[in-house]
Design a protein around this nucleic acid. Sequence first.
DNA 1: TATGAATGAGATTTCATTCAT
DNA 2: CATGAATGAAATCTCATTCAT
Lengths: 209, 209, 209, 209
Amino acid sequence: MRDKELTRGRILDAAEKLFAQKGFHETAMEEIVRAAKVSKGGVYFHFPSKEALFFALLDKLADALQQEVQQEIARRRGAVNKIQGALEVVLRTLSGKRRLAQILLRQGYGLGPAFERKRLEIYSRFAQLIQKYLDEAAAEGSIPSINTEITAYAWLGAINELVLRWIYTGEPDPLTETLPALLEIFLRGIGIEYPHKSRLRKEPYDHAT
Amino acid sequence: MRDKELTRGRILDAAEKLFAQKGFHETAMEEIVRAAKVSKGGVYFHFPSKEALFFALLDKLADALQQEVQQEIARRRGAVNKIQGALEVVLRTLSGKRRLAQILLRQGYGLGPAFERKRLEIYSRFAQLIQKYLDEAAAEGSIPSINTEITAYAWLGAINELVLRWIYTGEPDPLTETLPALLEIFLRGIGIEYPHKSRLRKEPYDHAT
Amino acid sequence: MRDKELTRGRILDAAEKLFAQKGFHETAMEEIVRAAKVSKGGVYFHFPSKEALFFALLDKLADALQQEVQQEIARRRGAVNKIQGALEVVLRTLSGKRRLAQILLRQGYGLGPAFERKRLEIYSRFAQLIQKYLDEAAAEGSIPSINTEITAYAWLGAINELVLRWIYTGEPDPLTETLPALLEIFLRGIGIEYPHKSRLRKEPYDHAT
Amino acid sequence: MRDKELTRGRILDAAEKLFAQKGFHETAMEEIVRAAKVSKGGVYFHFPSKEALFFALLDKLADALQQEVQQEIARRRGAVNKIQGALEVVLRTLSGKRRLAQILLRQGYGLGPAFERKRLEIYSRFAQLIQKYLDEAAAEGSIPSINTEITAYAWLGAINELVLRWIYTGEPDPLTETLPALLEIFLRGIGIEYPHKSRLRKEPYDHAT
DNA sequence: TATGAATGAGATTTCATTCAT
DNA sequence: CATGAATGAAATCTCATTCAT
């Protein structure tokens, strides 16, 4: 039982590294087997197929990111503040774990219907997270009434693109440098003037109403 | 000499259809050969490899879209107006040519480093187009001074994600329905109230009313 | 684990037969696969490429011949006697194993640089064997001091050509009929009268009698 | 007519260069076409197939070599002297025209029955040349009665092997350094003591009988 | 004569998956 | 649970040759 989990972990680690480096199709099971120091049969004992292994990895990584984001959100008060925190966490985490970014953002596009469903599912999770807080903010009156679904996906896409760019070009370095500009666009986009240097408030904004 | 250009065109057409339908790896050269009614050698005479064929196709489609966008931009006056026109054209065109969208946006992500470089290159072209007009608008004073590069990529990413979503889920139908919401976010994000001048919220979010 | 060595052997056997019959390029991997009753992947599991398979076969055959020659040499006493034994064994063995001859002598000439390097390597092994005994004989004083390296290669070439001729024309039948004439030329070439001690011509050709 | 010959010559030259460098199978018609600055159809107008082109080249080169050898032979008097001259010419010529050597000696082994027939034919021509003078010498009594056919092929093979070795290893440099040792073995092999430094005679040996 | 686009059979190689041990 | 030899379908690519222009 213990060993089983260890082997499984080694396989996932090897797969993470290789898929991130070379993509799904360019990575052969043989390589994962070698890197994980497991036998072919071993991998197939833990994962019924290469695709299943990939999906398991995707889930694992998405879960980890989502959990970090939710923890940060829980720590903050006020919808907009939560949004800002979430964005910070996402960029900081992806910035620190390039491989995570590579797999979560790059993979699963042109790989066939099953992959696309998976990607859709994962992105939906995050989009709904965003949308939920946008809806809350709208309900509070903190922001004007907007199409929060489209906004959520637009934000996701914007982050995606900028992180992707960072992965390839290494710019900006560090990735978190995009944070102020991105926040500015995002928040102003939903009708909130982004606080400038001088007046960054630590306190949540939603208390006194 | 049979008609070289004609054959080349037939191959590109077949490739466009098949790559859009099934993706790069899922499409066998054999199928393209069959669909284009060319011999295998014929395809390899025109394109040295499957990858090269794919890239040529990508370029062709990107060129076509870019040209349409630029024509629209040329027709309009004023930076903001041009931006609006460009966005309209992109959404309208992708909406009408689902295959174009599928190939330009979906393919070339998880297909390995070479593909990603290509995608990056193409997206850069569009990003620079956007950035140029944003910079002009900023110079005109139509918009506040912002990080136009990040904004350009953010917009591109947002469009990408929404079109992708439309490709998968078919929503919203038609795709152009996203236009008002997207424009609103985009323009407001750069400090332009859209579309109603009256509702501009000047106050920051922390007004404590 | 099925029996690895057994499969490898079957592949080498099939390859030997086919390469000997039809040559390297004329033999398709498909045919070897069929003849060896192995799957295509099976062959590639054991040999990374067709070329590698061919080289492995060459080594195997050369090793076998070299071993036979060395055993015969070990059995005999006296440098000249050893040389005679070696020549006999080579001709007798090649005569009996036409396939061995075909592969060892015929293949690997016009097949490109890599093949020729391999052939050179194998021939060097045999040349060194010959040279070693020639040097010994010279040290013993059994033969005059000559360029033993050139002699060794000359002998190898002579044998090569005669065996090649035999392979093509079937003459002389049996191949071993060349033995006396060849020995005569070889030994006389290094100053040893063969086989009749009486007829040694000491005088140079310019005696002017 | 004039142009025809010119084109044909350009093709043969290009083929000579490429076949010598890379071998028959590794050289594509495409490359010859490029190197000769002719069209594909042009090559096929002059030579019905790749094989035919190769054979034509072989013949051309063999003829040239044979002619040089025969001229030298005609210049000399006395069978043994002629032999020495022939050997000198062959080594000198091949030494100067490495490509000629590469094609004439290396090619046409493992390339299938048709190629082997051709090689056999060419080698026969030279073997018969040698044999003829050996027979004459034997008839004259200059050499003991030996198997002149086997001797001729043995010599051919010896030369072949040494030139081949020179082609790959570059040793000995120049190739003609092998001449004395080779002559010594050859002549002694047929019962003629090879003249040492001191008493090299310029005059033919056969006058005074 | 010459051109070069097109042919198409066929070659080598890959690789996810299976299964006897 | 694990191993790794073996499978075999399928993929990409090559290249001598042809033939409409």
